[in-house]
């Protein structure tokens, strides 16, 4: 079994590493530094770390000011708070002026499982994906996390980086080719394409293995960049496989599934089944509530089979 590293730990380590090589990088935190792991940056660079307390709106507006004066702020809090309480300056300052602010939404999806629906994040992608010029990245393992943290600093303009609390298998080699806007085919297949993002990538891989035993060849792709989405890859999946399932730890409205449908409806319409949340989840063990939401490997395999059979 692959080594497991929590995305948040990989993020904290990567941010610190970035701070070592880029003096323009600063980090802001709203009193969850021990959870987001931004604390690692703070301990290394206390002068460039601003813990604003429980004040997400102020934090995000401060980041806008820092960016307007040439710094590259990484803004940290839970994904759900970053895209609700702090959304105003994201819309009116950061996206509007295309500022170099990197919004790091941790504990996304259901990954803060026991804290319950108030701390889950199932509409963050829809909130940021509609903003002009916003790059939206959602990572699935420790290596990809570090690549994304570094890539965000190089990108001009705002980035939303979707992070997770969950320990995740490390599936990428250190030298992986991470390119913003380019999805990665993890497994070839021709009967159906499973397009997944974040932690769901691992579930999609599990599902593909189950389908293989039933003689179904499933392609699996890691769509780590939700916006701008990899149109060429989506069209290729539609042409090659003819049927598509999207899997995300997010509402089926406004996230990956919607983005895929938007592209394919205009270019290469094929049946698409969107898997994700249709209602608020609840407190509980992470894997258990994912399964209840239909987001286990077995659930995905079942839906894939149904789609292939045309019902």
């Amino acid at each position: 079994m692959a080594k497991q590293i929590a995305i948040r730990d990989a993020f904290g380590a990567a941010l610190k590493k970035l701070g070592e090589v880029n003096e323009r990088v600063v980090a802001l935190e709203a009193d969850v530094g021990n959870s987001s792991k931004s604390i690692l940056f703070g301990q290394a660079f206390p002068d460039r770390y601003f813990n604003v307390g429980i004040a997400e709106l102020n934090m995000t507006s401060m980041a806008a000011g820092l960016a307007l004066s040439g710094m590259i702020p990484y803004v940290n809090t839970f994904a759900t708070f970053l895209t609700s309480r702090a959304l105003d300056p994201v819309i009116s300052l950061i996206a509007y002026d295309h500022l170099d602010v990197k919004l790091c939404g941790t504990y996304s999806g259901l990954s803060d499982s026991f804290d319950g629906a108030s701390h889950h994040s199932i509409c963050d992608l829809s909130a940021v994906r509609s903003l002009p010029g916003m790059t939206v990245i959602s990572v699935c393992d420790a290596v990809e996390t570090e690549k994304a943290v570094f890539a965000a600093a190089e990108l001009s303009g705002p980035v939303y980086l979707r992070l997770s609390r969950a320990p995740a298998p490390v599936i990428y080699p250190e030298n992986m080719d991470f390119q913003v806007g380019k999805g990665i085919i993890l497994r070839e297949g021709s009967d159906i394409a499973i397009l997944a993002t974040g932690y769901m990538v691992h579930k999609a891989l599990e599902a593909a293995k189950m389908l293989e035993k039933k003689g179904i060849s499933a392609r699996v792709a890691d769509i780590h960049t939700i916006s701008p989405i990899d149109r060429d890859l989506l069209i290729d999946c539609a042409k090659t496989c003819g049927k598509i399932i999207t899997v995300e730890e997010h509402s089926i409205s406004g996230g990956l599934g919607s983005a895929v449908c938007e592209v394919l409806s205009e270019t290469c319409p094929v049946p698409v089944k969107r898997l994700g949340l249709t209602e608020y989840s609840e407190s509980g063990d992470y894997e258990e509530i994912l399964e209840k939401a239909g987001l286990s490997g077995a659930c995905i395999a079942e839906k894939a089979e149904k789609l292939i059979k045309g019902n």
């Binding site: 601003f50 709106l57 102020n58 934090m59 995000t60 507006s61 401060m62 980041a63 806008a64 000011g65 820092l66 960016a67 307007l68 004066s69 040439g70 710094m71 702020p73 105003d88 300056p89 009116s92 300052l93 509007y96 002026d97």
Partner: peptide
């Protein structure tokens, strides 16, 4: 120097600029 419109954001943005300075 800073966009504005929705009220209540400017003092935070100004603080960010001052800290950058």
């Amino acid at each position: 120097d800073v966009s504005a419109g929705p009220l209540g954001l400017g003092l935070s943005a100004g603080l960010g600029m001052a800290l950058a300075g």
